[in-house]
Amino acid sequence: MTGRRALRGALGAAGFLLLMEALGRAGVIDTYTLPLVSSILAGAAGLLADPGFLAGVGGTLSSCAAGLLLACALAVPSGLVMGTLPAVDRAVRPLVEFLRPIPSVALLPLAMFLFTSGEQGKIALVVYTCCWPLLINTMYGMRDVDPLAKETLRSFGFGSLDVVRRVSLPSAAPFIATGVRIAASVALIVAVSVELVAGGDGIGTFVSDAAAGNRRDLMIAATLWTGVIGLLVNTLLAATERRAFRWHHTRSSQETP
């Protein structure tokens, strides 16, 4: 069943590539505007040995990881506090709802002023972006905690900190993991955006340099690799979630991609 799906998917992807190649060779698509698939794939293979591109990938991914970690350190405890203390939640919620819809890239010019190094500005924007899905998912997970388990622990004389550590946190963990996965995909988008506009070490800079050199094959090849990286990260996180939280069967119904 799944084998047949995978086969069909592979056929679809192969068919798409062959079609694009054929259209390019037949002259339907101008190969200057959109290079042949074969030359893009050759360029993509060449990028694997290109130190400039590899450094760019390293730069982008390290800023994403640093930003994501910082955001976790900020947002998860805040979400726990807001989820445990309804008074805090009621008070702070309007601020969250006001700040959350601000598109992170709107803060880019400000970040370029505030941080002398582009790297720091990039990380700061990634942190800002990642905080919201993490915070919201943590709070949402806290709402889902079984009150019976909490009361049981309390009646056995555990303090509220212990209740958070032993019941609320494990029970909210699947939601936090979903938040991490969503945050990781937006982190990549924001990091690349900052690089495109402000430069610095990264895939975005590599692509805009390739654009300046009119190397369309390299631009598209680098973009393809970024898509592959995004897909890998997402698949990896989703698989970890599935393995780690197999007991959490309600997850799939409210998952937002």
């Binding site: 998917g9 679809g12 992807a13 995909s185 988008i189 975005g204 970024t226």
Partner: peptide, 26 residues
């Protein structure tokens, strides 16, 4: 659905801002 889904998944994973320089050449 089966034929197109992996392709759509892939395109969805590409950070869209990266394509702006490519679109700009077009």
């Amino acid at each position: 659905g089966d034929v197109t889904e992996p392709l759509i998944h892939f395109f969805r994973s590409v950070p869209p801002p990266l394509l702006i320089p490519i679109f700009m050449t077009m």
